[in-house]
Design a protein around this nucleic acid. Structure first.
Lengths: 243, 243
DNA sequence: TCAAAGCAAGTGTGATCACAAATCAAAAAT
DNA sequence: ATTTTTGATTTGTGATCACACTTGCTTTGA
């Protein structure tokens, strides 16, 4: 019986091949909408229709409506009583609410990560920061989309080290909800002359390197508070104007 | 022109009629599955099929599959790589993870509520506790389902006072995730002779009445920790046994 | 001139069908 | 006797259709 030999051969093959995976259309639609939402490609109050999105994504309505339903349950989108769906509007209360929740949960996540990250992982984060600087130095034109993507990678690379399968989806949900708001602030930022975001990230990494959970939490809160505070001021002064 | 008169008449009618609302089948299915999940009617590792649930709920597959998709995104259910769906298994890490997240977020919610609850709202909570005691005194037979429902009302009545539209859905998601685990613990509880749950709730209310946020948070954490700790011990000793 | 009624295009929801993948059981081969 | 193969059934996914509700515009009436 050559059973062992066959088994071994299969293992050899398995080691060389990468699993192809079976991604459904619905998953792709969902991911795409997530990406758009976090990246702020949709603006607050924008209405979304199933058929419109289906056309834009070149599929039928079925995957879209299920993806929309999922996004509605995580409050990334809003279902109006008319059964139409829009990206939620920005209000002052919502901004404060989101910032508080994010500070609480992402703060906890980074505090956990601070005690668990291996030197290997910290080095990886630092390397990411280095690449980022280079990129920024090379191209003078600000690529906001790329900036946002890198920022997202930086944060989630850290959060993933917190070792909590419960907290991370909640953080993703929070990013989904604050995406449209944040983008508004980012645009305003880039007009108002860029503040040194790299500084904030470096102090986060420094705290992580020292395994100082409290310092990491504070540095993180300072980092994520900036766009919210900016947006808050902007909204407040706009609210006073007679619109 | 009798415009004003017509308007007045319409208002009179509107005052007497209650809005009928338009609840979709999908919403009802979703609510029903939520209820079942939080109440622990499904046990961990149980497999769920679209057609099976559709038959049980007497609808077609369409509303069920969308409801399942929504529950999967909030981690209340788990999508296996085979694309079949089951209620997530209980593991030691998951128990600790859920308890930590719940302590963090529900603790924050109750701390906020402690500073915001009006005497009117506190009285309402106390009344609820009173009714509860009466009910418990009247019927000697323990009605676990009723207990669980009342416990849920008690907690969410408080959380709703925290004034955060972001935190509350997260708490609901956490209850959804811990529902199946908790129920296992509750059953074990009722076998092992009931501990005085009323005592924990009373100390929560006392802290709220004093507007002592920190005390409220601690009392709450003590309350929700119990079933988790119980379950944890149970699982640990079972893990040692040769199953 | 302006408000109300009526009509048409658009939209979400649910049901049904077709298809591919997975599962399970019986039969065949070693 | 154990493993492999084969075939039947079940299951999830996506497309399409029918229906009801909404919306916006046109037409009609005062």
């Amino acid at each position: 019986m050559q059973k062992a030999a066959i088994e071994k051969n299969n293992e050899t093959i398995a080691a060389q091949l990468t699993p192809v995976g079976r991604e459904t259309v619905q998953d792709r639609v969902y991911s795409e909408l997530r990406r758009a939402l976090i990246g702020g490609l949709f603006e607050p109050n924008q209405m979304l229709t199933i058929r419109g999105l289906a056309d834009a994504l070149v599929t039928s309505t079925m995957p879209v409506r299920e993806a929309l339903g999922r996004l509605i349950t995580e409050k990334a989108l809003e279902a109006l009583p008319n059964r139409s769906v829009r990206v939620p509007p920005i209000t002052l209360e919502r901004i404060d609410d989101l910032l508080r929740a994010r500070s609480l949960i992402e703060g906890e996540a980074i505090a956990l990560a601070a005690t668990r990250m291996s030197p290997r992982q910290i080095a990886s984060i630092e390397a990411m920061l280095g690449e980022w600087d280079e990129m920024r130095a090379l191209k003078h034109k600000k690529d906001i989309d790329r900036e946002a993507t890198l920022n997202q990678s930086f944060h989630f690379e850290i959060y993933r080290c917190c070792g909590s399968a419960v907290l991370i989806p909640m953080i993703e949900s929070l990013w989904l909800q604050s995406g449209p708001c944040i983008r508004v602030a980012i645009y305003a930022f880039s007009e108002a002359g860029e503040v040194d975001t790299a500084h904030y990230h470096r102090s986060i990494v420094a705290a992580l390197a020292k395994q100082d959970a409290q310092a990491a939490r504070e540095a993180l809160v300072a980092d994520i508070s900036r766009p919210f505070a900016f947006l808050r001021d902007k909204l407040q002064s706009a609210g006073k104007d007679p619109t």
